[in-house]
Design a protein around this nucleic acid. Structure first.
Length: 213
DNA sequence: GCCAACGTTGGC
DNA sequence: GCCAACGTTGGC
């Protein structure tokens, strides 16, 4: 285990729920002049398809990671309305996926990272599209970021609701051993807590997770 | 615990 | 704008 895990703090007194994944970095940075959220050229990059205009009714798929010791899928199932805000993400690419890519109704694979075994354990659904992450504004939060101000929020989150628990975990070794899943962003991009999943990848992983035996 | 792969920061 | 130093994630 690594540093994280340290997370798990007071419950955010906010709307949805507790904290989750990505712990953060340290610290309180000294007061700095507000920065405008940087816009990366990701629209033209390898993730362009995640942000491209959608066909009418098109649903997209994603994967989010959380350490089970911090916020597990069982915690999500036990949360009010089986819903939580996916706060505390402090990585610009993951932020962009949440702020600009995810839409209500999209389905999300729930992955337990730093777990034994690390695995996809269930499915949740986006029920609220990107909105400012309140924890970044709160000086008492361990996720406080002085660079994020209400006028120009730096960090965003979405709300997700649990849809179904897999009947068995689809482990990382299994994913790595599946030919059709070799291109999954989960395997290709290291250390990103929110990543896109293609429709075929989603179908394969979900089928594996819902099949007994 | 180790370390690879990144992302971010800051000096220049 | 370059790039080295540093921090973080997360598999192993």
């Amino acid at each position: 285990m690594s540093a994280k895990k340290a997370a798990r703090k007071k419950a955010a007194p906010q709307k949805a729920a507790p904290k989750k994944a990505t712990p953060k970095s340290a610290a309180l940075k000294k007061a700095a002049p507000p920065k405008v959220p940087r816009s990366l050229p990701y629209e033209q990059g390898k993730w362009a398809s995640a942000f491209a205009p959608r066909a009418p009714g098109e649903r997209r798929y994603w994967l989010v990671k959380s350490e089970p010791g911090v916020f597990s899928f069982a915690d999500l199932l036990a949360a009010p309305k089986r819903t939580t805000c996916w706060d505390a993400v402090r990585n610009t690419s993951a932020r962009n996926f949440m702020r600009d890519g995810m839409k209500t109704g999209d389905l999300v694979l729930y992955y337990h990272s730093n777990a034994e075994p690390s695995a996809v354990v269930g499915v949740c659904e986006v029920v609220r599209e990107g909105y400012p992450d309140e924890s970044a504004f709160d000086p008492s939060s361990e996720y406080f970021d002085a660079d994020s101000v209400r006028e120009t929020p730096m960090w965003y989150m979405v709300d997700v609701r649990a849809v179904e628990a897999f009947v068995r975990p689809v482990t990382l070794p299994e994913i790595k051993a599946t030919a059709a899943l070799q291109q999954m962003a989960l395997l290709k991009v290291s250390r990103l807590s929110v990543v896109p999943v293609t429709p075929s990848e989603w179908e394969i992983v979900r089928t594996m997770g819902m099949r007994k035996g």
